[in-house]
């Protein structure tokens, strides 16, 4: 009972610490919001999103394979280790892919896997950066036309952008909770350890805790990375990311907010005709995309194997 909850909580905490930056990095870095206020807003919105719309993802992930208390713990632990290793390697990570990889690894070892659900998940993984790219490319000229028509002065423009970035940051937090809570909660529900509401509260709470306690450094890094774009582009990027992730919350597949952000940045870059779309960065993301579920699966399978070794005298 303790291992799955602690491992799940750890995974949620790591997820919150990493992904809060995708919602509020720009706002904090540019000084429009204090770090404490941003993380508090993010934490509240994550819990609200998880409670209101997190159930669909829990059903999808829970349906991939059946879980026991031990396998639930091993899944969460494998995913958490995968996330940590990939972060240390400096590769863009997707917690969702690590979790699904871990579920699959254990499913393979148990020889019980539901591949129908997996197809949907993989299609959504491909669709995340692509969807965010298309959305950002469509939103940029649309919102840009509206923004230009307002003909605001320097101050009012600044205020409009600040309010906009805070609003889309909150929406991003909501979408993060709605979509990613399944990464933590699905195995707890599937193993029968918690009711969906309890699991959602554990998942949402741990993600919120990660955002509150350990997101400062990532927020500063993502913030400075995104601020190289102007504030308007950053607003479009966060909005496109949040919309994409929210859509996948309805579909019921947890996806990566980081990959959605990268897709949106490329979308804005293409519309603006930037020549600075970094191919090396894209290659790393593709590498991370392939490696994360594979490492998650290998690790969970290995842990499952080790925990099921029996001494034969």
């Amino acid at each position: 009972m303790v291992l799955p909850v602690v491992a799940g909580g750890f995974l949620g905490w790591a997820l919150g610490a990493n992904d809060a930056a995708n919602c509020f990095g720009t706002a904090v870095r540019s000084g429009m919001l204090r770090f404490r206020t941003a993380t508090l807003l993010c934490a509240v919105m994550v819990v609200v999103g998880a409670l209101l719309e997190g159930h669909a993802g829990i059903e999808t992930l829970g349906g991939l394979t059946s879980q026991t208390a031990l396998t639930a713990g091993l899944t969460a632990l494998s995913a958490a280790i995968t996330v940590t290793v990939m972060t240390l390697l400096g590769l863009p990570i997707s917690t969702s892919q690590a979790v699904v990889g871990a579920i699959l690894g254990i499913g393979l070892m148990q020889r019980q896997l539901n591949l129908e659900g997996l197809e949907k998940v993989v299609v959504c993984w491909v669709g995340t950066p692509l969807g965010a790219l298309l959305l950002a490319a469509a939103l940029y000229p649309l919102l840009g036309r509206l923004y230009n028509r307002l003909d605001l002065g320097v101050y009012r423009q600044d205020e409009a952008l600040r309010i906009g970035l805070i609003a889309v940051g909150c929406y991003g937090g909501y979408a993060l909770g709605a979509n990613n809570v399944a990464n933590v909660s699905a195995v707890l529900v599937a193993s029968g350890l918690s009711t969906p509401l309890e699991a959602t509260l554990i998942g949402g709470g741990s993600i919120a805790l990660g955002a509150l306690t350990f997101s400062r450094r990532v927020m500063a890094t993502v913030g400075s990375g995104v601020v190289k774009l102007d504030a308007f582009s950053a607003l479009v990027v966060v909005l496109a990311e949040a919309l994409t992730v929210h859509v996948y919350a309805w579909v019921g597949v947890p996806v990566s907010t980081s990959q959605a952000v990268v897709g949106a940045v490329v979308g804005v870059g293409l519309v603006r005709g930037l020549r600075s779309v970094r191919l090396r960065r894209l290659r790393n993301i593709a590498l991370g995309w392939l490696l994360t579920p594979a490492i998650g699966a290998a690790l969970s399978a290995a842990l499952y194997f080790v925990t099921h070794l029996r001494y034969v005298g």
Binding site: S30, G31, M32, V154, D158, L161
Partner: peptide, 10 residues
């Protein structure tokens, strides 16, 4: 940091 970075610089 009374304004956004780009407005600040301008």
């Amino acid at each position: 940091k009374a304004l956004l970075p780009e407005a600040r610089g301008d």
